[in-house]
Nucleic acid binder design. Structure first.
Lengths: 340, 340
DNA sequence: TGCCCGACGGGAAACGGTTCCATATTCCAC
DNA sequence: GTGGAATATGGAACCGTTTCCCGTCGGGCA
């Protein structure tokens, strides 16, 4: 396998000059550079990243820790991150962190602590103090996308506002008894995504003078089957039921739609449903939703990381730091005026 | 940052011995090993993987190239791979290869060719000759999961048999006019997943003495909206229509279910639907499907890779090489006897 | 004319490990 | 008692880069 020495010899220069020519660091005469480049191309030389990072300390690799890859939101974020990193010439090392399993410690203490990654993007993970500290100690920049914990750079949607927005949409339509399908743990952990959306819901309801009964707020896994089961429980009893549902994610909302159909509830005449995410299927389901552009979020996170790494040539401007990420209510046929 | 020299000094041994003690290679007295280990723990020593791979040539990292992360099947495979690699102490570098874009060449020639990965797992990608050659030249083991191209180790479902199985299930139920929702490109590329499933469908139909009209086989993107649109086209016209649909994936099938509902077609009385995958939502939709355990497939691929890398301590046995991966027909309420 | 500074290039020292080779001791077999 | 494994350790080379330090060569400026 060709090494830089071979290139140097072929070009008739020293290893030092060859290195300078190829990396673009330091002074090299234009003609020399060309000679080196053709020599490199000729023997198909590719620099060993191991050797390079051994001395520079940079690996051109960022670690991404993410709790799911198969939930739409996360998959979309991951895709955005991947694409952005690739165009910047970075590799992406994936750590699929299943909630605080035994692996979790290993990831932080072993995998991320090794010099393998220049920085870490944590998406939707609630970081413990010591996890952040471990990264900090190794001086690895950390960018969080959603999630909680750590004082690091965090990009985040204003989830309380999202909950409020969705709920107000239903209130404006004249609904008064509105239920909420919340993510698991929403009430115990008020600082999480689920918690904040629930909070926004309660705020909006309170401001409108309503006080949702505890039975109308049900927590479940944020998946379509989760929403299905929860909605069956919410709607599948005799007696009066809510006329609208605010689901904390589109996948939950899809499940609710399916449950309503199963229960023979006319949609949207008897039940309005609003979700959150802007899921690629939302249009097909005619679902009103608060979009949040996860792919874009991923790209933004990469932008911040690159900036933190001092990568100069990054084009897109830093989003106003501190400002929440953009969201937008998209109204479709799943929500309509409350029945009288 | 602590280096192995520091550990050695603290333990009162040479770097060589320290290395042997920590890696477990070569002879080291039990007592010495303990001294080195405590010394390492004391100063929080972690070996630099860069330095190590520089000399050993192995990186403990495998590259995964995958065309989507947000299609259920692929996400599930990815998750399986990730978990298996992590437990084996390997990192996973993700390359989300969007069909033959301009990035594609970069991935193969630049990213994968660098010494960053020990091996490559390609899931569901149709490899070009020169792409395989590039990997081969670098002597990087390549394991394919599905997809086509390359002579490398390939794990694969027998997709023709899958198509046949699903179709025969419908035939046994007495259906005679059966439509097929195929993946895009099924007719042009008979060797791909879509092509093989279509082939299996046609074989089964032919064997039963039926000759599906071209209008009853429609190709579309393998997503739920894709299935929705295609099914609308297939079923949404006046006049007699198929009494059953074999969808090439569960996501397509979900879309078809949704379309049928939209069209007011009674399910399953007027229309039976069968899919492929064993999607996590299949149960909720009462969908009959040919399951194929993608997570397990990912794990198997890792098993093969580790074996190829000479990783001795791999527990699970190599699946009979050559034998197709397991599948299973799961019958649910979406399929029923043909109406008279 | 003399000096300094910028451009350019080479030698050699890192970077942080692993492994080859040599040496030493122990132990067992013949 | 000698030979030869087997065990245990240290010294030094080596992996393939980047970068520091230094020398040379011109050219502009005082």
């Amino acid at each position: 396998m060709a090494a830089i020495g071979d290139v140097a010899r072929l070009a008739g220069v020293s290893k030092a000059t060859a290195s300078r020519a190829l990396t673009g660091n330091g002074y090299v005469a234009e003609e020399t550079r060309r000679r080196v480049e053709t020599a490199a191309a000729e023997i198909g030389y590719i620099a060993s990243p191991d050797a390079a990072s051994l001395v520079t300390g940079r690996t051109k690799n960022v670690g991404v820790v993410i709790p799911f890859v198969n939930r739409w939101f996360f998959g979309e974020v991951l895709e955005g991150i991947e694409r952005a990193l690739l165009t910047a010439g970075y590799d992406l090392t994936l750590y699929n962190l299943s909630d605080s399993g035994p692996d979790r410690a290993r990831v932080f203490e072993f995998f991320l602590a090794r010099k393998r990654v220049d920085a870490v993007i944590a998406v939707g993970v609630d970081l413990a103090e010591h996890e952040v500290a471990a990264l900090d100690r190794r001086e690895k920049p950390l960018v969080c996308l959603g999630g909680t914990g750590g004082t690091a750079a965090r990009l985040s949607v204003d989830d309380r506002a999202v909950g409020q927005l969705a709920t107000e949409h239903l209130l404006h339509l004249g609904h008064t008894r509105i239920a909420h399908l919340a993510g698991a743990g929403a009430s115990e952990r008020p600082d999480t995504v689920q918690g904040l959306r629930r909070h926004g819901f309660l705020d909006a309801m309170g401001a409108a003078g309503h006080d949702p009964s505890p039975a109308d707020v049900v927590e479940t896994e944020m998946t379509m089957p989760g929403g299905y089961r929860a909605a069956l429980q919410l709607l599948g009893h005799p007696g009066p039921r809510p006329t609208a549902v605010f689901a904390a994610s589109d996948e939950l909302a899809f499940g609710a739609l399916r449950a309503a159909e199963r229960l023979g509830i006319a949609m949207p005449a008897e039940l309005s449903v609003v979700g959150v995410d802007g899921h690629e299927y939302a249009e097909m389901f005619d679902l009103t939703t608060v979009e949040q552009y996860p792919g874009e979020q991923g790209r933004s996170a990469v932008g911040v990381v690159l900036r933190l790494l001092g990568e100069g040539a990054v084009a897109d401007p830093l989003p106003d730091s501190g400002a929440p990420l953009p969201t937008r209510l998209v109204v479709r046929a799943s929500t309509t005026a409350a029945p009288r």
